[in-house]
């Protein structure tokens, strides 16, 4: 166990060092969410009730989808290069390789989420501390699951990498749009609402909105938590299996 923790720390430190050395990179990676926050947020003001309580959680979920995807991409680059192979010839624990990477993504996500929240407060976002903490915790669990799924996809995409690009392009954008992250799906046509109900991310978005509005007893939180745990369990199971099967 101590070896596992040490190995996890080794991987986490390796992954986090470039971000610590160049913290501005983290800010640039937030360009899109920040633009959405300021642009769409202002546009939607008044259209969906208290727009900031509605919009900020959406942005956070969006980051929670794109962050792990980017992490998978970075892993794919390392798989196609030789650096991951190099690490797999060392005694480094395979599961620790996955966990360390995921933890780093979570740390980044947490920093970015806190920054978004802080920036949204002057715009009119009302802070419900208990809801926000619960919301962030849920996002981190979701990020762990999605990160692991993204790593599995990267592993399966070797040697060409095409699969990764195809799946992320084909799946991510529709999932994002149809989850009602940016625009309310409820006011759309019936088919859109049906699709939204199949999309597990919609439940998480709804749960996040309830939490960020301080509505802690809303039943949507239960569904959102269930969807999050499902994704996390699936991701960790597949991820661990893929790592131990050899890459």
């Amino acid at each position: 166990m101590t070896t596992f923790l040490r190995d996890t720390a080794t991987v986490f430190t390796r992954e986090a060092t470039p971000a610590v050395r160049e913290p501005l990179g983290l800010l640039f990676a937030m360009g899109q969410p920040l633009l959405f926050l300021y642009l769409f947020g202002s546009l939607l003001d008044g259209a969906v009730g208290s727009s900031w309580q509605w919009f900020v959680p959406g942005i956070l979920v969006m980051m929670c989808l794109s962050g792990p995807m980017a992490a998978g991409y970075l892993m794919l680059v390392e798989l196609l290069g030789g650096s991951l192979e190099r690490l797999t010839v060392t005694p480094l624990n395979r599961t620790a390789m996955l966990v360390g990477r995921t933890l780093k993504e979570m740390a980044v996500l947490l920093c970015q989420a806190v920054l978004i929240i802080l920036l949204a407060i002057p715009l009119g976002f009302r802070l419900y501390p208990a809801g926000v903490l619960a919301g962030l915790a849920m996002l981190i669990v979701l990020g762990v699951g999605l990160g692991a799924l993204s790593f599995v996809l990267a592993i399966k995409s070797v040697p060409s990498g095409t699969l990764f690009y195809v799946v992320t392009q084909m799946v991510m954008f529709p999932v994002l749009l149809l989850s009602g992250v940016l625009l309310p799906v409820e006011s759309g046509p019936a088919w859109l609402r049906v699709v939204g109900q199949i999309n597990p991310i919609s439940y998480i978005v709804n749960a996040q909105r309830a939490l960020f509005s301080g509505d802690l007893t809303n039943p949507s939180i239960l569904y959102g938590t269930a969807a999050t745990c499902l994704i996390a369990a699936l991701g960790l199971w597949l991820g661990n299996r893929a790592m131990n099967r050899g890459i």
Partner: peptide
């Protein structure tokens, strides 16, 4: 793994990392 060294066909150092950082990571792996 603990007893052998391996220099693969492709490059071992990750693109995102500084040379010395990768060497330190490698030492930590062992």
């Amino acid at each position: 793994r603990a007893r052998i060294g391996y220099v693969g066909q492709r490059h071992g150092a990750g693109e995102n990392f500084r040379a010395r950082d990768e060497l330190v990571t490698q030492g930590r792996c062992y």
